[in-house]
């Protein structure tokens, strides 16, 4: 038996067609509102870099990752509120509290995440007037 049998292949790199904005567009075309959560600043050690994004649907479905663990669950809860109210908000995820847990996100850093609602009318407003 191969000694490397227990290694999992990393997930295949997302195809270009699967960019966050392709996903957003697909939901918007179906008339849904989604929230895009983006890491806008970090302090200390964090699981993912500034600019990492995930899309959250009204039902709490997640596409992409901002690092997993408790932080992501908090962001998901906030995102559902953001979708409901159509108002963006900034969420601070403190990974310091996680130190005793089994979470893979025990990094010791802080992430500021901007959670932004996207819906059809808002999306076309931007390109309507130049």
């Amino acid at each position: 038996m191969s000694g490397q049998g227990e290694c999992f292949d990393p997930p295949l790199e997302a195809k270009k067609q699967d960019s966050v904005y392709h996903q957003v567009k697909e939901f918007l075309d179906k008339g849904e509102t989604v929230a895009v959560a983006t890491i806008v600043s970090t302090k200390g050690s964090t699981p993912r870099e500034v600019g990492a994004k995930m899309v959250v649907t009204a039902w709490g479905e997640i596409l992409g990752t901002i690092g997993g663990g408790c932080g992501e669950a908090d962001v998901k809860r906030e995102a559902i509120e953001v979708i409901r109210t159509h108002k963006p908000r900034m969420v601070r995820v403190d990974l310091l509290d996680d130190i005793s847990s089994d979470s893979p996100a025990v990094c010791g850093g802080i992430m500021n995440i901007f959670v932004d609602p996207w819906w059809k009318e808002r999306d076309t407003e931007a390109t309507g007037e130049k």
Binding site: K16, S19, K25, M90, A126, T127, G128
Partner: peptide, 26 residues
């Protein structure tokens, strides 16, 4: 009229350099 998400999807597909600025706090 193309929507912003459509424009952004096209940019990531074609590999064009661009900057999207978002006001996150005012």
């Amino acid at each position: 009229m193309t929507a912003l998400s459509e424009e952004l999807a096209r940019i990531s597909e074609q590999g064009v350099s661009a900057v999207l600025a978002t006001i996150v706090e005012a």
